[in-house]
Every structure is written in structure tokens, then in C-alpha cells.
Write a protein that binds this DNA or RNA. Sequence first.
DNA 1: AATGAATGAGCCTTCATTCAT
DNA 2: CATGAATGAAGGCTCATTCAT
Lengths: 213, 213, 213, 213
Amino acid sequence: MTEPQAATIPRKLPRQARAAATMEAILEGAAHILRRDGLGGFTTNHIAERAGVSIGSLYQYFPGKEAILAELIRRKRAALLGAFQTIAADEALDLPQAIDRLVAVGIDRQLADPVLSLALDYAEAALPLQAETRSLKVALIGTVAGLLARHGIADPAVAARDLIALARGMADLEGLYGEADGPSLGRRIRRAVFGYLGPGPFSSTPLPSGSLK
Amino acid sequence: MTEPQAATIPRKLPRQARAAATMEAILEGAAHILRRDGLGGFTTNHIAERAGVSIGSLYQYFPGKEAILAELIRRKRAALLGAFQTIAADEALDLPQAIDRLVAVGIDRQLADPVLSLALDYAEAALPLQAETRSLKVALIGTVAGLLARHGIADPAVAARDLIALARGMADLEGLYGEADGPSLGRRIRRAVFGYLGPGPFSSTPLPSGSLK
Amino acid sequence: MTEPQAATIPRKLPRQARAAATMEAILEGAAHILRRDGLGGFTTNHIAERAGVSIGSLYQYFPGKEAILAELIRRKRAALLGAFQTIAADEALDLPQAIDRLVAVGIDRQLADPVLSLALDYAEAALPLQAETRSLKVALIGTVAGLLARHGIADPAVAARDLIALARGMADLEGLYGEADGPSLGRRIRRAVFGYLGPGPFSSTPLPSGSLK
Amino acid sequence: MTEPQAATIPRKLPRQARAAATMEAILEGAAHILRRDGLGGFTTNHIAERAGVSIGSLYQYFPGKEAILAELIRRKRAALLGAFQTIAADEALDLPQAIDRLVAVGIDRQLADPVLSLALDYAEAALPLQAETRSLKVALIGTVAGLLARHGIADPAVAARDLIALARGMADLEGLYGEADGPSLGRRIRRAVFGYLGPGPFSSTPLPSGSLK
DNA sequence: AATGAATGAGCCTTCATTCAT
DNA sequence: CATGAATGAAGGCTCATTCAT
């Protein structure tokens, strides 16, 4: 895809409370539109109207629609990254426990807003985003990779990417068409993840034989 | 997303050879545009130009861009479904062998055209497709579910959807950012799949004890 | 209105029965479309489809849509003209009797197909038609004018045009919004017509003096 | 005619003076186009160009060409309605005098712009207008009907519609093909109108008995 | 003669973006 | 800063018409 790289950083940082509120309104409006109309209906005019802000104001805060989308992605990734980092930094957790938590966190966000999540996931994959946004993805994978490496998993970078992709793929479909049963989905994802990682000495509490069903 | 359901079936069947060629040209042009410019650049004018066909001709065969997209999805799914059915019908294969083949087939198609695949996957998930197109997805899942059921897997319908989603999630990202190493990807996907399915009597090479939960 | 004068005569006279049938089918299809969709939906493609004829065939018989419209107008006027001439030629009728008949004939045609009539009336007034078609209108007015002159009406040409316009105006609206009560409409039109003509020696039942002027 | 009811109300009310000027320019441009090219040439692009306004601006104020047409009709009817109400409210006038004035007012407007008037009349009759626009027509008829009722005319609603239709029919044709001699046309219309109303006690110059009815 | 595939000008409309107020 | 009027490129789609088969 070769669309001309667009500016994706907010134009200016709001210094006043009112300005911050305007910016939030725009982003909330954008999320609403994306959820309701998908990427096809994601237009600056609609966003401004929904946000109760003039189109001129919108362009005071964002240089274009790509920037709004990028900011939505950035925030989503940043929140996820923070949660992941906290989990990965917790030395008290063994790998299965850490993965349980990572999966649980990821599922929560996905199921809470499946359509928006799917649209942002696609946008992130398909659109040319700025380096700064991309770096969040790298950090996300890196955090998981570090955790895996610490527990002796081979090829941790590839594994981290695979596992995130796997979980996201399952969660996307469950969100859209399934019954959005988080606990059940979590169990299924963990089975796949642990299968991927293989039987190893990484677990502090080895499970007995005898399958799950 | 509540876009107002668009017509997604071709407008008329070509009666002359020339007409069939035009229709193919349009579909090829559409695939090319989708690959090169993504869903954002997927416009009827671009498609017609790329196909070397007048915009009027395009509308003789398709009532709109949605219909072209739907037809691309339909063809992709139909081809995949055919391959899956052949594999699932082969009684000589045990479950691991059958899964090996399913994964291999799926990977081939995905890696051969990653950007196109991603766009079609997103379109299929996010756009409101017609019943007929959706039925192909159902058939695809059903084929895998039948295979799983025959080998004693519990909850085969959910499992089939999960496994397809899982594999597709991994393959999408590998196609976009990875090294497109099919055999390696295949091995990783299989690990996840067998982990998901759990240790069972289905395997000719039974897994050792110590699986994870 | 200065639209470029278009050809309005049928391209060729059908010599075979099949050809004549095709031409009739086209004209009937055109009337149907005009009735159902108005002048805005009057397109050659729709007409051909409705007529069950290929678009190519349509252009074998008519050089363009204007010609089809013109032919519809021509036929309508010709039929009316024939009826009018018969009435005007009947020496046995006095003026009130003749007018009764003229009005009755006009009303019948208008009420039988009000939407089509209105569209044709507008087309006749607003579109640039060919001399031959226009001449039918002249003949129609002339026929009435001759009748009026024969009974001593002053300014018969203007009167004929006025009376036709008057009756058509009333009939158009009655057709669209009224109860399409022909006899009642006829009575009302005749009151207006005789009022217009004023108390004169034309009637076999002469009116008393005291005109309205 | 069953065209899919289009929006016919202006999109937004102009808040700045500049905006009001733009809206007027659009309406004037639309009137010019209608006059010059008829309904067939009545396109948004032509209107915008003629108005010296971008096509985008046109769509800021009107949701489509139907809305522009509706607004032209609305204004024309509103002006006529105002004049009619003034006349009908004047208790000093007897019926013939009031009718004289109504006819004179109607003729003035029709002859001043015959092509535009004809196009608007047809549009009003043939297009599906909004309730609000239709209500102006009802008010117009109602005003005349009230006047007639006050003077003891039977069936005043039907009579009002008939008389308006009758006058409009005559004026439309006079405007297009006649010599646009207002006074003469007025006299002729009045003859028809009084003939329609019949000899009654309404006139300050009472008619003798012996009407045709 | 008949067919219907093909054409492309042109219509309607949206939308990202700018700029005067 | 905010507003909203204005812009025009561009996209979706139709329709009159031609022409090879």
C-alpha cells in the first residue's frame, strides 16, 4: 500500500482545560463514528458534528483524519502497553500466571468494544502510520518477548508476535460473532498459547497428565 | 456498523465470451487495486481504469463496488472451501495429518498475497455481506467442524471457528511483517492448534504427558 | 428553452408485421414508463427493457428518445384530432351540442390516463418538437376555430386556443387530485366555455340578453 | 409516478449575511436555468455555475435539486397567496371586483415569466412535494374558496380549484404562444370564470335568468 | 434485423481542507 | 481561539448512443 504518508501527530498540545476538553470531545466523537459507521464513514465533518465542535476547531487540533485515527490507535496501544508492562515486570509470577493475566487484559479490551477494536486493528495493519505509533507496537511485542525470553522460550520475538496475533485473531471473531464469553474465550486462547509454547520447564506448577477435554 | 446493506450480487451473467472476459478483467483489476491501494483506494473508477474497461461496463456487471468485493471474497472462500472439503473427505488421514494439510493450504493462499488477503479478511468481517456470501463462511467452518467432530473433539463448531481465526491471525501478520517463511509458520500454527485441541486419542503420534492446561 | 433541436420522426416505417409489433411494443413500453416514472425516468434503456426489446432494436425504429416522445404526442393528438373533425363536420349539431361532444371526448382521454396526459401535455408545451408534430396542434386548434367561426364567434382562433387550454387545465387537475367524475367535470367545463363565448345567437336555445362581458 | 420522495427542505438556515447571499444566488441561478433550459437542463452543476457558487456550497444549503425546486415553488406560491389573501380580505369588494383583482394578479405573475411558470406548474403537479409545500397550495385554494363561499357560491372548494386551473391553463398557453396581452387575457379569463359561476346574486350587476348551467 | 456489449460524458453528491470573520 | 462559509477534486452511478457479431 502506497498512500502518501500523512501527518499523524496532533497539531498542538492543549494548554488549557477547555482545549483539552475539546480534544477529548473530538476523540470521543471519532470513536463513536468509527464504531457506528466503520472506516468508510470516518469523515472529519461527521466527527466534528458528532463531537459538537466546528470543523475549524477540529483542524486546530489535528492536521487531518489520519492523525485522529493515529491518536486513537496510540491511546489504545499505550493503555495496553502499560498493563502489559506491569504484568511483565512482576517477578512473582511464573510464565503461566503471567500469560493468564496478559490474555485476560487483552480480552477485556477487545470484547468491550469489538467493532471499534477490529477497525483500529485493521487500520493499524493496513495504513501507513508514523514511526512514533509504530514504536508502540514494537514496545508491545518487546514487552511480551522479554517475558518469554526470561522464561527460556526460544525465538521470543517471533513467539511474541505470533501469540499476540493468535489471541487477537480469536478475540476479534468472538467479539463479532460469538457470545462474548470472556472466561471461556480466555481458556481457549490459553490452550492455544501453551500449545504453541510447547511442554517446557517454564512452569513452576507443572500440570498433571490428562487433557482438558 | 450499520451501513445500509448494499447489493452484493453480480448484475447479469455474461452471455457472450467477450462479456465473460470483461468480467474477469474487472475482477482482476479490482484485486490489483486492493493489493496496491488497500480498501481506501478501492474505487470503481480506479478499478475500471486498471481493468482497461469503461466505467459503464463495470456497472453492467456489478451494481457497485460492494458487489465486486463480495465476488472476490466469494471466490477466495470457494477455492479454500473446495480444498478443505477434499482434505476433510479423505478418510485415510488421521486428525494431525488432516490438520497439517489444512494449515498448509491456508498458509499458501495467505502468504501468496498478504495485503489482498488482509483486506478481504477485514472486508468480510466488517462489511455486511449477503446471505449467500456468508453461507460460504458457514460452510468453511462447518467442514472443519465436521472433521473435528469425527475425531471426537468436543464443541467442534466453536473449535473450528477458533482455529481458523487463530491461524488467520498469525498468517495475516506473518504475511505483512514477517519473513513469509511458510514451513516455519506452518509449524508454529500447528503447535498452537494442537495445544488448543489438547492431548487426545486422535493423534497417531501421541503427545507426551505434562501438557499444560 | 434552447435545447438543440432533435430528430423527432421515426427512422423507418416497418414493412413487416413483426417489425410493426416491435414498434408497438416500444411505444407501449414508453407509455408505461412515462406513466409510472414521469419524464424524469423516461430513458431509452428502461423503455427497451420494459418493451422486451433490445436497446439496439429500439434505435432501429427511433433515432432517439425525443422521437419516441414525439410519436406518443403525435398519436394522442391525431386521435383527438380525428374525433374533433368528425364532430366539427357534423352539420346537424348546433354549437352547444358540438361543444358538449368536444368536451366529452377531451375529458374521456384525459381522465383515462391522467399522469400520462399531463406528462405529454408538458412535453408538448416545453420541448422543441418538430414542425410535423406542431402542425397537429395547429390543426386541432384550427378545427375548433372553424367550428366557432361557422357559428359567428368573434376571434375564433384565439377563442379556440383559450377554450382548449381552459378545458385541459381543469381536466389535468381533476385527473390528478379530483374524483375523476367525468360528467360533473363536463358540466363545469361547459359552464366556463359558454361563459367565455358569451350570450350569442349561436345557440339553438338562445340566451337572453345581459352578458357578463 | 412513484419517484422515491426526496428531501425538499433547505438544509440549514444561513447564520451569516454572506450565507444568505449565497442562498439567494443559488435560487436566482436556479430560476434562470429553469427559464432558459427547462426542467431537462435543471442540474445542480449548472445551477451552481450560473449562481457563481461552488457545487459544494449549493449542497450546504440544499439537500438536492428537488429541494431547490421546492423552494422556488414555495416562494412563488407564498407571494401569490399573500396577494390573494389581501384581496379576499377586502370586505369592500363585491365578488366580480374581487375576481377581477385575483385574475389580474395571477396573470401578471404568469406573463412576466411564462416558461418558468410553466415549469414550476408542471413540477408542482408531477413531482411528489412535501406536505409543507403542498399546504401552500391548499391555502391558496382555501383562500379563494372562502371568498366564493362568502358570496354564496355552491361547492366553493371545487369551484376554487376549477377556477384556478382554468385561469392557469389559459395563462400558461398565452404566455408561451400568445401575444402576452394581459388586459385582453384578463377579459377572456373573466368571461370564463363568470360563466362557470353562473348568474347569481353575487354580482353588483346581477345577471338575468336563463343561464346555461 | 436483432442483439447486447461497450462507451464515456456528465449528473449527483461527499468530504478534506482553508480562510475570512 | 472558535466558527462556519466556501471550495473543488473526486467518487458513485446513469444513460443515450454506437457497433461488432
